[in-house]
Amino acid sequence: MLHIYCPHCAEYREEEEFRPKGEAHIARPVAPEAASDEEWGTYLFFRKNPRGLHHELWYHAAGCRKFFNATRDTVSYQILETYKVGQKPSVVAGQSSNKGAAK
């Protein structure tokens, strides 16, 4: 069971209160009507899916019902940080905490 810190509730809660929502920081095409099929397809479907650090969206479904971001290792599943939508992650791939995770 993951123990997840909701930055809105400022509390650790059990995994079952949350829903993972996939890769974070995916920018919608700025001019949607001008976007090519390729840009749309990439935006909608193509994902980084890293083996290692992943910045992802979570939803506190059975809590405050707000979205937030997390940086999590997809091999150990360890959550390294959670932060509000609109903020930048402080742990990023290539830093020392990522050791061994890239394999």
């Binding site: 829903r19 993972p20 996939g22 083996r51 992943h54 997809t74 091999v75 150990s76 599943y77």
Partner: peptide
């Protein structure tokens, strides 16, 4: 399990 993972295990829930 809803989250991305490569760990060949999931959550008990």
């Amino acid at each position: 399990d809803g989250y991305n993972g490569y760990g060949q295990r999931g959550s008990y829930s």
